[in-house]
Amino acid sequence: MSASLSNQQQQNDGPIAVPPSSKDIFLDRTFRTFTTCFAWLTLLLIGYIVWEIGGTALPAIKEMGVGFLTGTTWDPNKGEFGILPQIWGTFYSSLLTLLLGGSFGIAIAVFLTQDFLPNKIQIVLKSTIELLAAIPSVVYGLWGIFVLIPLIRPVANWLHATLGWIPFFSTSLSGPGMFPAALVLSIMILPTVAAISQDALSAIPDKIKEAAYGMGTTRWEAILKVLLPTASRGIFGGLVLGFGRALGETMALAMLVGNSNQLSLSLFSPADTLAALLALNFPEASDYETQILMYAAVVLLFITLAVNIIGELIISYSERSGGKK
């Protein structure tokens, strides 16, 4: 080895460094241009989605105008189309979901970040919640039909019988309906809300918590009066994103909400949402009906885009102002 070493040394006694070969420079330029193209493609993709769906819907938008948004009948035989019940159902189910999933999600985030549990159990619980998010929504739908609805029907019908004068309980639950749908949806958005709230809570510097304890607060006073308000913008962003997911979720609703063209406050009455409307009608739609469904898709697209952009802005704003030390 050492003999060859000295030979080698003599052979290669100039500097080894050479400028990057023209191939290297060519590859470098090409690759960088290539990735830039893909960054542009991301922008184009969003534009294309809006343009393609909007373009297909355009004839229907021109023909039906705003009346489509306020009409309450959907009858392909008569050619009458309106999606007010679906818009109502979309927002109503999402708000219920937000109320249920949101409060559970925040409670869990507090539970997981504020040292209630030994570290090991905390990790187990955290991954359990994350697994909730991994179950496909169609499986939740199946579970809702065969487990949840039979389970809550007696309770719902008892509520209707005794408290029927309250508008929320004004109908009985005969099968699918708003409440079971919202309940399953809340399970589905819970991991989103919990994860983002956890991030917001653990981004608070320890010194703020110490300051609160130093003032003589109990754990809960520190959580309610100092920590949650400090993390509020992040948590709010998480809620908006969860709301956005609920607005666009399709399968659980198509399977559980009952798909009935109704405008009702009752939790137990069947209803319909935009996403469920698309899911059920698209496969058998005529060309004309397809255009109309595209119009409904445009409405859904704009609602969810607006909600998501707002949520994203809130989160990035709170990261910029609160998260950094």
């Binding site: 080895m1 060859s4 070493l5 080698q8 040394q9 052979q11 080894i16 050479v18």
Partner: peptide, 18 residues
């Protein structure tokens, strides 16, 4: 790493050892 970067043609083992 630098040898490969500069497409060095000589004996890698020897150069690394050196």
């Amino acid at each position: 790493f630098g040898l490969r970067l500069n497409r060095y043609k000589g004996d890698y083992d020897a150069r690394v050892e050196e």
